[in-house]
Design a protein around this nucleic acid. Structure first.
Lengths: 149, 149
DNA sequence: GAATACTTGACAATTTTACTAAGGTATTTT
DNA sequence: AAAATACCTTAGTAAAATTGTCAAGTATTC
Protein backbone atom coordinates (compact mmCIF):
# COMPACT_ATOMS: atom_id res chain seq x y z
CA UNK A 1 0.00 0.00 0.00
CA UNK A 2 0.82 3.67 -0.38
CA UNK A 3 2.73 3.17 -3.58
CA UNK A 4 4.43 6.17 -5.14
CA UNK A 5 3.86 6.46 -8.91
CA UNK A 6 6.76 5.86 -11.27
CA UNK A 7 6.51 9.50 -12.28
CA UNK A 8 7.51 10.51 -8.78
CA UNK A 9 10.18 7.87 -8.53
CA UNK A 10 11.74 8.68 -11.90
CA UNK A 11 11.50 12.37 -11.13
CA UNK A 12 13.61 12.03 -8.00
CA UNK A 13 16.17 9.90 -9.80
CA UNK A 14 16.31 12.42 -12.66
CA UNK A 15 16.80 15.27 -10.23
CA UNK A 16 19.64 13.33 -8.65
CA UNK A 17 21.33 13.11 -12.06
CA UNK A 18 20.80 16.81 -12.74
CA UNK A 19 22.22 17.64 -9.31
CA UNK A 20 25.47 16.01 -10.35
CA UNK A 21 25.99 18.72 -12.98
CA UNK A 22 25.37 21.56 -10.56
CA UNK A 23 26.10 24.44 -10.87
CA UNK A 24 27.23 24.74 -14.49
CA UNK A 25 27.09 21.47 -16.41
CA UNK A 26 23.73 20.86 -18.11
CA UNK A 27 22.56 17.25 -18.05
CA UNK A 28 20.69 16.08 -21.14
CA UNK A 29 17.51 14.04 -21.12
CA UNK A 30 19.25 11.44 -23.23
CA UNK A 31 22.00 11.04 -20.64
CA UNK A 32 19.51 10.70 -17.79
CA UNK A 33 17.46 8.22 -19.81
CA UNK A 34 20.50 6.01 -20.34
CA UNK A 35 21.86 6.11 -16.82
CA UNK A 36 18.50 5.78 -15.07
CA UNK A 37 16.94 3.43 -17.64
CA UNK A 38 13.81 5.48 -18.36
CA UNK A 39 12.47 6.42 -21.82
CA UNK A 40 13.30 9.83 -23.24
CA UNK A 41 9.65 10.60 -24.05
CA UNK A 42 8.49 9.89 -20.52
CA UNK A 43 11.33 11.92 -19.00
CA UNK A 44 10.39 14.86 -21.20
CA UNK A 45 6.99 15.00 -19.52
CA UNK A 46 8.46 14.75 -16.06
CA UNK A 47 11.23 17.29 -16.53
CA UNK A 48 8.80 19.70 -18.13
CA UNK A 49 6.74 19.73 -14.95
CA UNK A 50 9.81 20.25 -12.82
CA UNK A 51 10.88 23.09 -15.06
CA UNK A 52 7.50 24.80 -14.86
CA UNK A 53 7.73 24.44 -11.10
CA UNK A 54 11.00 26.33 -11.15
CA UNK A 55 13.13 23.54 -9.74
CA UNK A 56 15.29 23.30 -12.84
CA UNK A 57 16.05 25.46 -15.85
CA UNK A 58 16.82 24.31 -19.35
CA UNK A 59 19.63 25.07 -21.77
CA UNK A 60 18.80 24.47 -25.42
CA UNK A 61 21.03 23.47 -28.29
CA UNK A 62 24.03 21.15 -28.50
CA UNK A 63 25.65 20.58 -25.13
CA UNK A 64 22.41 21.68 -23.50
CA UNK A 65 20.25 19.99 -20.92
CA UNK A 66 18.93 20.79 -17.48
CA UNK A 67 20.50 22.59 -14.54
CA UNK A 68 19.29 22.79 -10.94
CA UNK A 69 17.87 26.19 -9.99
CA UNK A 70 19.11 25.93 -6.41
CA UNK A 71 21.95 24.06 -4.80
CA UNK A 72 21.34 20.36 -4.07
CA UNK A 73 21.19 20.95 -0.32
CA UNK A 74 18.24 23.27 -0.87
CA UNK A 75 16.15 20.90 -2.98
CA UNK A 76 14.05 18.57 -0.86
CA UNK A 77 12.35 15.39 -2.00
CA UNK A 78 9.12 16.96 -0.79
CA UNK A 79 9.54 19.84 -3.26
CA UNK A 80 10.12 17.44 -6.16
CA UNK A 81 7.16 15.21 -5.40
CA UNK A 82 4.91 18.18 -4.72
CA UNK A 83 5.59 19.46 -8.17
CA UNK A 84 5.04 16.13 -9.88
CA UNK A 85 2.14 14.72 -7.92
CA UNK A 86 0.78 17.45 -5.73
CA UNK A 87 0.80 17.45 -1.93
CA UNK A 88 0.55 14.32 0.19
CA UNK A 89 -3.18 13.53 0.53
CA UNK A 90 -3.85 10.15 2.10
CA UNK A 91 -7.58 10.63 1.54
CA UNK A 92 -9.67 12.79 -0.76
CA UNK A 93 -10.81 14.74 2.31
CA UNK A 94 -7.27 16.01 2.66
CA UNK A 95 -6.78 16.91 -0.96
CA UNK A 96 -7.03 20.69 -1.32
CA UNK A 97 -8.64 20.17 -4.75
CA UNK A 98 -11.33 17.82 -3.48
CA UNK A 99 -12.56 18.08 0.07
CA UNK A 100 -14.63 16.13 2.54
CA UNK A 101 -18.25 15.21 2.00
CA UNK A 102 -18.64 13.97 5.55
CA UNK A 103 -17.87 17.29 7.16
CA UNK A 104 -19.05 16.08 10.54
CA UNK A 105 -16.77 14.58 13.13
CA UNK A 106 -15.07 11.91 11.06
CA UNK A 107 -13.15 9.68 13.43
CA UNK A 108 -10.31 9.08 11.01
CA UNK A 109 -9.77 12.60 9.75
CA UNK A 110 -7.09 13.44 12.28
CA UNK A 111 -5.41 10.09 11.72
CA UNK A 112 -4.86 10.64 8.01
CA UNK A 113 -4.02 14.27 8.54
CA UNK A 114 -1.35 13.42 11.10
CA UNK A 115 0.09 10.70 8.89
CA UNK A 116 0.30 13.06 5.93
CA UNK A 117 2.04 15.68 8.02
CA UNK A 118 4.57 13.16 9.28
CA UNK A 119 5.33 11.98 5.77
CA UNK A 120 5.83 15.45 4.43
CA UNK A 121 7.93 16.48 7.42
CA UNK A 122 10.28 13.60 6.67
CA UNK A 123 10.44 14.35 2.94
CA UNK A 124 11.26 17.95 3.69
CA UNK A 125 14.32 16.91 5.69
CA UNK A 126 15.84 14.88 2.86
CA UNK A 127 17.59 16.75 0.04
CA UNK A 128 19.38 15.87 -3.17
CA UNK A 129 22.64 16.43 -1.35
CA UNK A 130 21.68 13.74 1.12
CA UNK A 131 21.04 11.31 -1.73
CA UNK A 132 24.42 12.05 -3.26
CA UNK A 133 26.38 11.80 -0.02
CA UNK A 134 24.57 8.75 1.32
CA UNK A 135 23.75 10.67 4.49
CA UNK A 136 20.44 8.93 4.72
CA UNK A 137 22.06 5.55 4.81
CA UNK A 138 24.35 6.57 7.63
CA UNK A 139 21.53 8.17 9.59
CA UNK A 140 19.56 4.99 9.29
CA UNK A 141 22.46 2.83 10.42
CA UNK A 142 22.96 5.00 13.46
CA UNK A 143 19.32 4.67 14.34
CA UNK A 144 19.46 0.90 14.06
CA UNK A 145 22.45 0.62 16.33
CA UNK A 146 20.78 2.92 18.82
CA UNK A 147 17.61 0.87 18.80
CA UNK A 148 19.38 -2.45 19.25
CA UNK A 149 21.00 -1.43 22.54
CA UNK B 1 0.16 11.71 -3.82
CA UNK B 2 0.33 8.61 -1.66
CA UNK B 3 -3.42 8.11 -1.61
CA UNK B 4 -4.80 5.25 0.48
CA UNK B 5 -7.44 3.18 -1.32
CA UNK B 6 -11.05 3.39 -0.20
CA UNK B 7 -10.81 -0.24 0.82
CA UNK B 8 -8.25 0.70 3.46
CA UNK B 9 -10.15 3.78 4.54
CA UNK B 10 -13.49 2.02 4.84
CA UNK B 11 -11.78 -0.87 6.59
CA UNK B 12 -10.49 1.35 9.37
CA UNK B 13 -13.85 3.05 9.79
CA UNK B 14 -15.57 -0.33 9.90
CA UNK B 15 -13.16 -1.58 12.53
CA UNK B 16 -13.88 1.51 14.57
CA UNK B 17 -17.58 0.64 14.50
CA UNK B 18 -16.89 -2.96 15.44
CA UNK B 19 -14.67 -1.81 18.28
CA UNK B 20 -17.64 -0.02 19.80
CA UNK B 21 -19.34 -3.37 20.39
CA UNK B 22 -16.34 -4.91 22.11
CA UNK B 23 -16.26 -7.28 23.87
CA UNK B 24 -19.68 -8.87 23.51
CA UNK B 25 -21.99 -6.95 21.20
CA UNK B 26 -21.76 -8.06 17.56
CA UNK B 27 -22.00 -5.23 15.01
CA UNK B 28 -23.80 -6.09 11.78
CA UNK B 29 -22.63 -5.16 8.30
CA UNK B 30 -25.90 -3.39 7.75
CA UNK B 31 -25.36 -1.19 10.78
CA UNK B 32 -21.85 -0.30 9.72
CA UNK B 33 -23.04 0.41 6.19
CA UNK B 34 -25.63 2.87 7.44
CA UNK B 35 -23.49 4.69 9.97
CA UNK B 36 -20.39 4.89 7.79
CA UNK B 37 -22.21 5.36 4.51
CA UNK B 38 -20.61 2.48 2.61
CA UNK B 39 -22.46 -0.20 0.61
CA UNK B 40 -23.21 -3.53 2.25
CA UNK B 41 -21.76 -5.50 -0.68
CA UNK B 42 -18.45 -3.68 -0.57
CA UNK B 43 -18.19 -4.01 3.19
CA UNK B 44 -18.73 -7.74 2.87
CA UNK B 45 -15.53 -8.01 0.87
CA UNK B 46 -13.58 -5.90 3.31
CA UNK B 47 -14.79 -7.56 6.49
CA UNK B 48 -14.16 -10.97 4.98
CA UNK B 49 -10.50 -10.12 4.56
CA UNK B 50 -10.27 -8.83 8.10
CA UNK B 51 -11.92 -11.98 9.36
CA UNK B 52 -9.54 -14.24 7.48
CA UNK B 53 -6.72 -12.21 8.95
CA UNK B 54 -7.99 -12.99 12.41
CA UNK B 55 -8.69 -9.41 13.43
CA UNK B 56 -12.40 -10.02 13.87
CA UNK B 57 -14.70 -13.00 14.29
CA UNK B 58 -18.24 -13.39 13.04
CA UNK B 59 -21.50 -14.34 14.71
CA UNK B 60 -24.22 -15.66 12.40
CA UNK B 61 -27.94 -15.41 12.65
CA UNK B 62 -30.25 -12.71 13.95
CA UNK B 63 -28.49 -10.33 16.31
CA UNK B 64 -25.21 -11.46 14.79
CA UNK B 65 -22.41 -9.43 13.29
CA UNK B 66 -18.72 -8.98 13.88
CA UNK B 67 -16.72 -8.79 17.08
CA UNK B 68 -13.12 -7.70 17.61
CA UNK B 69 -10.74 -10.58 18.36
CA UNK B 70 -8.57 -8.44 20.61
CA UNK B 71 -9.23 -5.40 22.72
CA UNK B 72 -9.28 -2.05 20.86
CA UNK B 73 -6.02 -0.92 22.46
CA UNK B 74 -4.29 -3.93 20.89
CA UNK B 75 -5.51 -3.38 17.33
CA UNK B 76 -3.27 -0.98 15.43
CA UNK B 77 -4.12 0.81 12.20
CA UNK B 78 -1.02 -0.86 10.77
CA UNK B 79 -2.50 -4.31 11.41
CA UNK B 80 -5.76 -3.38 9.70
CA UNK B 81 -4.15 -1.91 6.60
CA UNK B 82 -1.65 -4.73 6.37
CA UNK B 83 -4.48 -7.18 6.17
CA UNK B 84 -6.41 -5.22 3.57
CA UNK B 85 -3.64 -3.92 1.36
CA UNK B 86 -0.42 -5.61 2.30
CA UNK B 87 2.62 -3.93 3.83
CA UNK B 88 3.68 -0.37 3.06
CA UNK B 89 5.72 -0.48 -0.15
CA UNK B 90 6.49 2.93 -1.60
CA UNK B 91 8.17 1.30 -4.60
CA UNK B 92 7.98 -2.11 -6.22
CA UNK B 93 11.59 -2.69 -5.07
CA UNK B 94 10.29 -2.72 -1.53
CA UNK B 95 7.34 -4.98 -2.14
CA UNK B 96 8.17 -8.45 -0.79
CA UNK B 97 6.14 -9.95 -3.65
CA UNK B 98 7.97 -8.07 -6.38
CA UNK B 99 11.57 -7.03 -5.88
CA UNK B 100 14.15 -4.77 -7.44
CA UNK B 101 15.42 -5.14 -10.99
CA UNK B 102 18.16 -2.60 -10.46
CA UNK B 103 19.91 -4.53 -7.72
CA UNK B 104 22.95 -2.26 -7.94
CA UNK B 105 23.45 0.78 -5.77
CA UNK B 106 20.16 2.56 -6.37
CA UNK B 107 20.45 6.03 -4.88
CA UNK B 108 16.85 6.19 -3.80
CA UNK B 109 16.46 2.73 -2.30
CA UNK B 110 17.28 3.82 1.24
CA UNK B 111 15.08 6.87 0.90
CA UNK B 112 11.93 4.89 0.13
CA UNK B 113 12.82 2.24 2.62
CA UNK B 114 13.25 4.79 5.41
CA UNK B 115 10.01 6.50 4.50
CA UNK B 116 8.12 3.23 4.54
CA UNK B 117 9.53 2.36 7.93
CA UNK B 118 8.55 5.71 9.35
CA UNK B 119 5.02 5.38 8.06
CA UNK B 120 4.57 1.92 9.48
CA UNK B 121 6.12 2.91 12.79
CA UNK B 122 3.51 5.64 13.12
CA UNK B 123 0.62 3.40 12.11
CA UNK B 124 1.71 0.83 14.68
CA UNK B 125 1.44 3.41 17.45
CA UNK B 126 -2.17 4.30 16.67
CA UNK B 127 -4.89 1.90 17.81
CA UNK B 128 -8.66 1.68 17.64
CA UNK B 129 -8.78 2.87 21.22
CA UNK B 130 -6.98 6.04 20.20
CA UNK B 131 -9.57 6.68 17.50
CA UNK B 132 -12.40 6.24 19.98
CA UNK B 133 -10.89 8.39 22.71
CA UNK B 134 -9.66 11.12 20.41
CA UNK B 135 -6.15 10.70 21.82
CA UNK B 136 -4.68 11.43 18.44
CA UNK B 137 -6.37 14.76 18.29
CA UNK B 138 -5.09 15.76 21.68
CA UNK B 139 -1.56 14.61 20.86
CA UNK B 140 -1.65 16.68 17.74
CA UNK B 141 -2.89 19.76 19.54
CA UNK B 142 -0.13 19.47 22.08
CA UNK B 143 2.42 19.23 19.32
CA UNK B 144 1.09 22.32 17.62
CA UNK B 145 1.21 24.39 20.78
CA UNK B 146 4.73 23.22 21.42
CA UNK B 147 5.81 24.13 17.91
CA UNK B 148 4.29 27.57 18.01
CA UNK B 149 6.33 28.69 20.98
C1' DG C 1 -39.65 -22.56 8.17
C1' DA C 2 -39.08 -17.78 8.01
C1' DA C 3 -36.09 -14.15 9.01
C1' DT C 4 -31.59 -12.49 9.85
C1' DA C 5 -26.98 -12.19 8.76
C1' DC C 6 -22.59 -13.82 7.31
C1' DT C 7 -19.85 -16.22 2.89
C1' DT C 8 -17.97 -16.62 -1.51
C1' DG C 9 -16.78 -15.95 -6.18
C1' DA C 10 -17.49 -13.76 -10.42
C1' DC C 11 -17.63 -9.78 -13.04
C1' DA C 12 -18.08 -5.00 -14.85
C1' DA C 13 -17.57 0.11 -15.01
C1' DT C 14 -14.48 3.67 -14.18
C1' DT C 15 -10.22 5.77 -13.28
C1' DT C 16 -5.42 5.98 -13.09
C1' DT C 17 -1.02 4.76 -14.61
C1' DA C 18 2.54 4.53 -17.60
C1' DC C 19 3.77 5.20 -21.17
C1' DT C 20 4.32 6.23 -26.88
C1' DA C 21 4.01 9.27 -30.87
C1' DA C 22 4.56 13.19 -33.48
C1' DG C 23 5.54 17.47 -34.67
C1' DG C 24 7.41 21.89 -33.12
C1' DT C 25 10.92 25.43 -31.26
C1' DA C 26 15.43 27.18 -29.90
C1' DT C 27 20.49 27.16 -30.07
C1' DT C 28 24.99 26.11 -31.62
C1' DT C 29 28.35 24.52 -34.84
C1' DT C 30 30.18 24.15 -39.37
C1' DA D 1 22.45 29.03 -44.15
C1' DA D 2 22.04 24.40 -43.09
C1' DA D 3 22.57 20.67 -40.15
C1' DA D 4 22.75 18.80 -35.75
C1' DT D 5 21.50 18.82 -31.08
C1' DA D 6 18.29 19.11 -27.61
C1' DC D 7 14.39 20.95 -25.37
C1' DC D 8 8.86 21.68 -25.75
C1' DT D 9 4.02 20.46 -26.06
C1' DT D 10 -0.06 18.05 -26.88
C1' DA D 11 -2.59 14.08 -27.84
C1' DG D 12 -3.61 9.46 -27.61
C1' DT D 13 -3.76 4.70 -25.81
C1' DA D 14 -3.15 -0.02 -23.76
C1' DA D 15 -2.87 -2.17 -19.42
C1' DA D 16 -3.63 -2.29 -14.68
C1' DA D 17 -5.81 -1.02 -10.55
C1' DT D 18 -9.66 0.65 -8.23
C1' DT D 19 -14.21 0.53 -6.77
C1' DG D 20 -17.51 -1.31 -6.62
C1' DT D 21 -22.13 -4.67 -7.91
C1' DC D 22 -24.55 -9.16 -8.29
C1' DA D 23 -26.06 -13.57 -7.30
C1' DA D 24 -26.38 -17.60 -5.05
C1' DG D 25 -25.16 -19.63 -1.33
C1' DT D 26 -24.62 -21.26 4.28
C1' DA D 27 -25.45 -20.91 9.20
C1' DT D 28 -28.22 -19.54 13.17
C1' DT D 29 -32.06 -18.06 15.78
C1' DC D 30 -36.91 -17.45 16.83
Amino acid sequence: MLRLSTKGQYGVRAMFEIARGYPDKPISIKGIAERQDVSVAYLEQILNKLKNGGLIRSVKGPGGGYVLSKKPADVSISAILNELEGPVAITSCLDPEEGCVRVDGCVTYMLWKSLGEKIDAFLRTVTLKDLASGTLFKKNLKLKIKNSK
